[in-house]
Deep mutational scan, measured.
Amino acid sequence: VRQEELAAARAALHDLMTGKRVATVQKDGRRVEFTATSVSDLKKYIAELEVQTGM
C-alpha cells in the first residue's frame, strides 16, 4: 500500500511542478489536496513515505 501512496504522491508533485493548480492524494485513508503553495508539505509527505518503504 505504501508503494502505491508513494507513487501517487510523486505523481501529484509532478503535476504541481508542471503547472497543475491542485493535486489530490489519499493520505491515511482520507483525501488531501495540495497546491503550489503546499509543495514543501507534499515533499515532506513523500520523504516520510520513502522512509516507511525503505527507499
Rank of each mutant, 00 (worst) to 15 (best):
R21I: 14
H14Q: 11
K27Q: 10
L6D: 01
V39G: 02
A23L: 01
L16N: 01
K43G: 04
G29V: 02
V51G: 11
A8N: 10
D28R: 03
D15M: 07
Q52S: 11
L16E: 01
E48H: 08
K44N: 11
V22R: 06
L6F: 02
A7F: 08
L42Q: 00
Q52P: 06
I46S: 00
S38Y: 02
K43L: 14
H14E: 11
H14V: 11
V32T: 07
A7S: 10
L13S: 00
V32K: 06
E5G: 05
I46N: 00
T53W: 11
V22C: 10
V39R: 02
V25A: 05
D15E: 12
A36F: 10
A36H: 13
R10F: 04
S38F: 03
R21G: 12
T18L: 10
Q26T: 14
R2Y: 13
G19Q: 03
S40D: 15
R31V: 15
K44D: 12
A12N: 01
R2L: 15
I46P: 00
R30P: 03
V51K: 13
L16P: 00
S40R: 08
V22A: 09
L13N: 00
S40C: 11
R31P: 15
A11Q: 14
R31Y: 15
V22P: 03
I46T: 00
Q26C: 15
A12R: 02
A23T: 10
E4H: 12
G29A: 04
E33H: 06
A8T: 07
L42C: 02
E4F: 10
T24E: 12
V1H: 14
A11D: 07
L49P: 00
H14Y: 07
A11T: 09
K43W: 05
L16A: 02
M55V: 15
L13Q: 01
G54Y: 02
R10S: 04
F34L: 07
V25Q: 02
R10D: 02
V1W: 08
T24Y: 09
R2W: 14
A7V: 11
V32W: 07
G19V: 02
L6T: 02
T35H: 08
E50D: 04
S38K: 05
R21W: 05
F34A: 04
A23Q: 03
A47I: 08
G54T: 06
Q3D: 11
A8H: 07
S40K: 10
V51C: 13
R2I: 13
I46E: 01
R30F: 11
R10W: 04
K43C: 10
K44T: 08
G29D: 05
T35V: 06
D15Y: 04
R2A: 13
A36V: 12
Q52L: 15
E33A: 05
F34R: 03
D15R: 05
M55K: 13
Y45K: 03
V25K: 02
V1F: 12
E50K: 05
K44L: 09
M55I: 14
E50N: 04
T37Q: 13
V39E: 04
T53V: 15
A12M: 03
D28Y: 01
A11P: 00
T37H: 11
A12Y: 01
Q52R: 08
S40F: 03
E48R: 06
V51F: 14
G54Q: 09
L6K: 02
K20S: 12
V39T: 05
Q52G: 10
A9T: 02
A9Q: 00
H14L: 11
T37K: 09
A47L: 12
E33F: 05
Q52M: 14
D28C: 07
Y45S: 02
Q3P: 09
E4G: 12
K43V: 14
L13C: 05
L42D: 01
V25M: 05
A7I: 11
V39A: 06
E5M: 10
V25E: 03
E5Q: 11
R21A: 15
M17L: 13
L49S: 01
A23D: 03
M55N: 14
Q52N: 11
V32P: 04
E48P: 00
E33G: 02
D41M: 07
R10N: 06
Y45H: 05
H14I: 10
G19S: 03
A11K: 14
R2S: 10
V32E: 08
A12W: 01
V22K: 08
S40P: 10
L13D: 00
A23I: 09
L13F: 05
H14F: 06
A36E: 14
R31N: 14
K27M: 14
V25D: 03
D28H: 04
D41N: 06
Q3A: 12
M17S: 06
V32Q: 07
V1M: 13
T53M: 15
E5C: 09
V39M: 14
A47F: 10
A12T: 02
A23E: 03
L16H: 01
L6Y: 04
K20R: 07
M55W: 02
Q26H: 11
G54A: 06
L42S: 00
A36Y: 11
I46A: 01
M17P: 01
V25T: 04
K43T: 07
E4T: 10
A47E: 14
A11S: 10
M55G: 14
V25W: 00
I46Y: 00
D41C: 08
T18G: 09
M17G: 04
G29S: 04
K44S: 10
K27H: 07
Y45R: 03
E50I: 08
A36Q: 14
A7P: 03
Y45A: 03
I46K: 00
F34M: 05
I46L: 05
L49A: 02
V25P: 02
E33D: 12
E50G: 04
T37P: 04
A8F: 07
L42W: 01
K27C: 09
Q52K: 13
D28L: 01
V39Y: 03
H14P: 00
G19P: 01
E48N: 06
V25F: 02
A11Y: 02
A7R: 12
A12V: 04
R2F: 13
V39N: 01
E4Q: 11
L6W: 03
F34C: 06
Q3G: 11
E33Y: 07
A47M: 09
T53L: 15
R2P: 12
Y45D: 01
Y45Q: 03
A7H: 09
L49Y: 01
K44E: 12
E33N: 06
E48G: 05
R31I: 15
T18Q: 11
L42P: 00
E33T: 07
E50F: 05
M55Q: 15
V51R: 13
D41K: 06
V51T: 13
Y45L: 13
A7N: 13
Q3K: 12
D15C: 07
T24H: 12
A23V: 15
R10Y: 08
E50T: 06
L16R: 00
A9M: 07
Q26F: 08
L13R: 00
R31G: 09
V25R: 02
E50V: 09
G54S: 11
A11C: 09
V39F: 05
T18F: 07
V39P: 01
K44V: 09
D15G: 05
V51W: 14
A23F: 00
R10I: 12
A8C: 14
S40Y: 03
L13T: 00
A47T: 09
E48M: 09
V39D: 02
L42K: 00
K43S: 05
T53Y: 13
L16G: 00
A11I: 09
V51A: 15
E4R: 12
E5Y: 07
H14A: 11
R21F: 08
Q3E: 12
V1S: 14
V51I: 14
A36T: 11
S40Q: 14
M17Y: 05
R31T: 15
Q3V: 14
L6S: 01
T35S: 08
T53F: 15
R31M: 15
T35K: 04
R2E: 12
T35Y: 11
K20C: 08
R31W: 15
G29M: 04
Q26Y: 10
V22Q: 07
G19K: 03
A23H: 02
